[in-house]
Amino acid sequence: MRRVACAPREGWRETVEEQGLVYAVPRGQDDLYWDESAYYEFTLAEVEALEEAVADLHEMCLDAAGHVVASGRYADLGITDRRVIELIERSWARRDTEISLYGRFDLRYDGSGPAKMLEYNADTPTSLLEAAGPQWFWLEQLHPGCDQWNSLHERLVAAWRKHAATLPRGPVHFAYTLTDEIGEDMMTAAYLQECAEQAGLHGTLLPVEEIGWDPALRRFVDEQDRTVNTIFKLYPWEWLVADRFGGYALDLALAGQGPAWIEPPWKMLLSNKALLAILWERHPGHPNLLPSYLDGPRELSVFGYVEKPLLGREGAGVRIVTPGHTVGTAAEPGERLCYQAFHALPDFGGNRTVLGAWVVDGEPAGLGIRETAGLITDTTARFIPHLIRG
């Protein structure tokens, strides 16, 4: 694995925006998000090792979710609402018939040892569109003789086609939130709609804020008063169940009614940072895991640890604590934390790199890379393409 500097294509911005990446240069930011002034190069052996690690990690995460359900350890995840717990348990019992579409593992890797799991974004992961499309088109144009770990588009279409017959009648609604000002959520939802339509389904894009509730017929409706029977939501479950209409969603689901949800409710167990501590507890010393705890940093205080809010996003509330030095901002008072061993992100010429390894329909499917100048990957991260040579 190495970082290679290169010249961006002439007219690159217009090119990637035409491919859907309208947030290549986010509004209100001076820095680029899509950055093709460099790329990361891997050997085939490195990618095969990463793919094997991701497959193992995904199976371990499913095992951890099953353990939480079987042992009732919801309080460790900060889940105490009895109805939410029942929703998760019913969903977990039906997991073979519900669609778990995709997820993204964030990994620490520099090519010199095993990849280390930093977290699993299993409910509402973004950076999908750029990994599936513009990154692949970049490769085809500039490096046609090379390969890329990227079967994302084909696997997403295949997943929709595989599950199409199990979905309720009517369009699949693809929901996003208007609070995302740069358009990333909307374009991610639109891309997944495109994948579903290529699989033969009919989809429609819908802001979460514009989903209506029909009290007479007890149903969710879109702007055209159509019943929402299937909904992909790029909106976290922990927000959804706490929203004004969250009670209706719970009522319907617990009555065996209402929409088919994608991602399903049991994904709440995998998008929670408490998962990291449960994984370490069940697989101590595993080469792809970092020591992690819920009751404090324990022995990690000697060399350094990372405080992570259980439901944190985009680096918010993450703090790195090492002897004599602290980086980041503390979480909100009273917010529950996971304490993970600090293993600095690899430094490639002043660029700190995180690998986003994708899982689609339970199988490893591709790679996207983000980098920052600092130790915490946040909203200033840049997306850098990659290739496989040799």
Rank of each mutant, 00 (worst) to 15 (best):
R3M: 10
R13A: 12
R13M: 13
Q19P: 02
G20V: 10
Y23P: 08
V25E: 14
P26N: 06
P26Y: 08
D35G: 03
E36G: 07
S37E: 12
A38Y: 04
F42P: 08
F42V: 03
A49H: 04
L50Q: 11
E51Q: 12
L57P: 01
L62A: 09
D63K: 12
A64T: 04
G66Y: 08
S71M: 10
Y74A: 05
D76T: 03
D76M: 07
R82Q: 13
I88W: 08
R90G: 12
S91P: 09
W92I: 04
R94T: 03
R95W: 03
L101M: 08
L101Y: 09
R104N: 03
S112Q: 15
G113L: 07
P114R: 04
S127A: 12
F137E: 15
L139G: 02
E140T: 15
Q141T: 15
P144N: 09
G145I: 03
W149N: 05
E154Q: 12
A159E: 08
G170R: 06
G170D: 05
F174D: 07
A175V: 10
T177C: 13
L178G: 00
T179W: 10
M187F: 12
M187W: 10
T188G: 02
T188H: 05
T188P: 02
A189D: 05
L192N: 09
C195L: 06
A199Q: 01
H202V: 14
G203Q: 08
T204L: 11
I211V: 15
G212K: 06
L217D: 12
V221M: 11
Q224P: 00
K233R: 12
K233I: 07
V241W: 10
V241N: 05
Y248V: 10
L252V: 04
L252G: 05
L254W: 10
G256W: 07
I262S: 08
S271V: 00
A274V: 05
A277P: 02
A277G: 00
H283I: 00
G285N: 09
Y293I: 06
Y293A: 03
S301Q: 14
S301I: 11
P309T: 01
E314M: 06
V327T: 14
E332A: 15
E335D: 11
E335L: 00
L337S: 01
C338Q: 01
C338P: 02
H343S: 10
L345S: 08
D347N: 13
G349R: 09
G350E: 06
T353Y: 00
G356V: 06
A365I: 03
G366F: 00
I369M: 01
I369A: 00
R370F: 00
E371I: 02
A373Y: 07
L375C: 04
T380P: 00
T380S: 15
T380N: 12
G390Q: 11
